[in-house]
């Protein structure tokens, strides 16, 4: 169990990893990665019951599925810093012959990845499948998933949402990265999603909401609450309000950094706001 100070230190280092990974290739998705750093760090270091000696079947482990695969930089950094693979491998992100593909995949057998994601809207169905198998196996551990808010525009998500409540998939905790932005701009300008809470409630999910999705203590509390409420006949969704680009002042408050990498000068400024804590890769 990490203290809040230790988690903060990890988050700062992970933000550096994300920035350096996308900068090296001049490609990748820093905005959502930075916005979900606190969530994934808290989940992996303090909540998931997992084994970094990777086994695909994950029997008697909690499993996590990243449905919005484009925020792979934060997942790769969190996995490496959890001990799934050497942090040196982060330097290969998006390069030829790398296991760290632009979007996560099982194809290169990277430890910690259980399904390919990137084409949006598919991860919730996969998570439900894994949750059903856990039930068949009488495995009491939980399934976690993360989705972009823009990703909820995909129809498959709502097929899955409908299925999960109808079939009481209550060993599933889905989180929505609710930053209200997507590539083309504000969600409200692209395709307004209306009242997400009401939508999930109408589909008979238990909805938890956290307004401070970049605050470590708040994230930890909402994850604990979700776990407590699990196995009670309803799937759970956490609407996690986050700030895209969190931790880098010029990347916050805009959708511009969804899929753009910083240049040399911008990287330097961004890194100066996140000084090295645990050692760069």
């Amino acid at each position: 169990m990490k203290t809040i100070q230790e988690l903060e230190s990890l988050c700062t280092q992970i933000r550096r990893d994300i920035l350096r990974m996308v900068h090296t290739n001049n490609s990748g998705h820093p905005g959502g990665s930075l916005g979900c750093t606190e969530f994934l760090t808290t989940l992996y270091f303090n909540h998931l019951n997992h084994n970094t000696k990777f086994d695909m079947d994950g029997i008697n482990e909690d499993l996590f599925f990243l449905s919005n695969g484009h925020i792979s930089p934060v997942l790769y950094s969190v996995l490496a810093r959890s001990g799934y693979f050497d942090i040196k491998e982060l330097a290969t992100f998006r390069k030829i012959d790398s296991r760290l593909q632009g979007h996560p995949t099982t194809h290169e057998k990277l430890e910690g990845i259980r399904v390919a994601t990137g084409s949006l809207g598919q991860g919730l169905s996969v998570a439900i499948g894994a949750a059903l198998t856990k039930k068949l196996n009488n495995d009491k551990q939980l399934i976690y998933s993360l989705h972009g808010d823009g990703e909820l525009q995909e129809g498959q998500i709502w097929e899955a949402v409908m299925y999960a409540s109808a079939n009481k998939v209550d060993n599933l905790i889905a989180t929505v990265d609710y930053n209200k932005k997507q590539i083309d701009g504000e969600i409200d300008d692209v395709l307004p999603m209306g009242n997400l809470r009401a939508k999930f409630e109408a589909f008979d999910w238990l909805v938890l909401e956290e307004k401070n999705g970049n605050d470590l203590e708040s994230v930890s509390n909402i994850l604990s609450e979700a776990k407590k409420q699990s196995r009670n006949n309803k799937p759970i969704v956490i609407l996690l309000h986050t700030e895209m680009g969190n931790g880098v002042d010029f990347m916050m408050g805009t959708h511009k950094w969804h899929g753009n990498a910083p240049n040399d000068e911008q990287l330097e400024i961004a890194l100066s706001q996140n000084t090295e804590t645990l050692g760069d890769y």
């Binding site: 399904v115 169905s125 996969v126 856990k134 068949l136 498959q156 097929e159």
Partner: peptide, 15 residues
């Protein structure tokens, strides 16, 4: 679409 995704997920754990 959901069926295909669920099927993929169910393999994780040996089904």
């Amino acid at each position: 679409a959901n069926m295909m995704g669920i099927a993929a997920g169910m393999t994780i754990g040996g089904k």
